[in-house]
């Protein structure tokens, strides 16, 4: 009988380890979730945002395509609408990020009437070729990023940005 009795010390040991473990788990779980979350999200296919743009209507001329996701910007949290410049090169759909590689303004296709067939940044006159290549002598030092693209039921889906693969 006495063999099975839990001593005061053992009892305290068990309970304290239990509580300690619980607390540790409380701290670790969110950390683990933060680390694992992006991976989990990817499995749900949630990295691509569906747009209203029909892939069949795209041409050689870049058009602005809007897509919306939630973002926290400084003190201001909101649904943010981003844009991509999308065109077709043969059968391939190309979506370029509008974010200027100089200091981050939004570039426009043929935004400067003096430079046809180029992207133009209104902030300091940065310019890019249609494939995103920065034009020497203007402030930007690298090409525009590219978005990953997918098609779903004839509509364009836009994913993450990656370094330009066309230049």
């Amino acid at each position: 009988m006495s063999n099975n009795r839990v001593t005061r010390r053992q009892f305290l040991n068990y309970t304290l380890t239990g509580v300690g473990g619980f607390m540790a788990a409380g701290m670790l779980m969110p950390m683990v979730r933060f680390a694992v979350d992006p991976v989990l999200q990817k499995k749900e296919g949630g990295d691509f945002v569906l747009t209203k743009q029909k892939v069949s209507e795209l041409t050689k001329t870049p058009v602005k395509v809007d897509f919306t996701f939630e973002q926290v910007d400084a003190w201001y949290k909101s649904d943010v609408t981003s844009t991509a410049w999308v065109y077709k090169e043969g059968d391939k759909v190309i979506a370029l990020s509008p974010v200027c590689k100089h200091l981050g303004c939004t570039v426009n296709w043929e935004g400067d009437p003096a430079h046809k067939n180029q992207f133009f940044c209104p902030c300091h006159g940065g310019r890019y070729e249609k494939n995103g290549e920065n034009i020497k002598g203007t402030p930007p030092l690298g090409p525009l990023d590219e978005f990953e693209v997918k098609e779903k039921d004839g509509l364009l889906m836009i994913g993450k940005t990656r370094p330009n693969t066309l230049v």
Binding site: Y76, C105, T106, P122, C123
Partner: peptide, 20 residues
């Protein structure tokens, strides 16, 4: 006004600073 200034920031990030 907050939405509008945030939008201005998106367009002109490299040139303007939006104050509180």
């Amino acid at each position: 006004l907050m939405s509008l200034t945030a939008f201005v920031e998106q367009q002109f990030k490299g040139r303007v600073m939006i104050m509180p």
